[in-house]
Simulated assay, not measured.
Amino acid sequence: MPDAARLVAAISLAIIAFIVSLQVMPLMPEGTDFGYFVPLNIAIGVVCGWVVMGRRAGKGITPAINNGLTGVAVMMFWGLFVQGAYKMFRQSMRHLYNGPFEALSDIFRIGLEYGMTIAVPNIIITLLVGALVAGLATEYAWRTWR
């Protein structure tokens, strides 16, 4: 059921996804075609905020902080997975894999490579502060507009 907590959580994670996406772009190799990188990450943030964080609101301050951390972690997992799957799909169209299992396992290798690339202090700090603010804002919205 739609409520203010779900909306605030979705908007909060969308903003975090937008900021982090802009921070990630300079870390990638020069000439990288980003295509739908930012809008796709924003959509992942909206869905994770609505589904993961929104339904867990209303349990107190400490669970709210944990809710924000969980929401950001789930968003990062799905973001890395989707971006890895997209790159795997592009590589599979160039016939770089010998079979489907090799292609599917490469999704996780690519996701780990991306994860290592973006594991820099400014992105980690942005994610942690964003998780804190998103969790507390979601809890505030739940308490204010039940």
Rank of each mutant, 00 (worst) to 15 (best):
M1P: 14
M1S: 13
P2T: 13
A5M: 01
L7R: 07
V8F: 05
V8S: 04
A9D: 02
A9Q: 01
S12N: 10
L13P: 03
I16M: 13
A17K: 05
A17Q: 05
F18M: 07
V20R: 09
Q23L: 15
V24M: 12
V24S: 12
M25T: 14
M25Q: 12
L27F: 06
M28Y: 13
G31I: 07
G31M: 05
F34C: 10
Y36I: 07
V38E: 09
L40M: 11
N41Q: 12
A43P: 02
I44W: 07
I44R: 05
V46C: 08
V46Q: 07
V46H: 10
V47K: 05
V47W: 06
V47N: 06
C48I: 06
C48L: 09
C48P: 03
C48V: 13
G49T: 01
W50K: 00
G54C: 04
R55I: 00
R55L: 00
R55V: 01
R56V: 03
G58M: 03
G58I: 01
A64G: 06
A64I: 05
I65A: 12
G68F: 08
L69A: 11
G71F: 03
V74C: 06
M75K: 09
M76W: 14
W78I: 08
G79V: 08
G84Y: 01
A85T: 06
Y86M: 11
R90D: 13
M93P: 09
M93V: 11
M93G: 14
R94E: 08
H95R: 09
Y97E: 00
N98C: 03
G99V: 00
G99H: 05
P100G: 15
E102D: 14
A103E: 01
L104K: 02
S105E: 12
I107S: 02
R109M: 14
R109F: 13
I110A: 06
G111S: 15
L112Q: 12
L112I: 15
M116R: 15
T117F: 14
T117V: 15
T117S: 14
T117K: 15
V120N: 08
P121F: 12
P121C: 10
N122C: 06
I124G: 13
I124D: 13
I125T: 11
L132M: 12
V133W: 04
A134Y: 02
A134L: 01
A137C: 06
E139T: 01
E139A: 02
Y140T: 10
A141F: 01
W142C: 01
W142M: 03
R143D: 02
R146S: 11
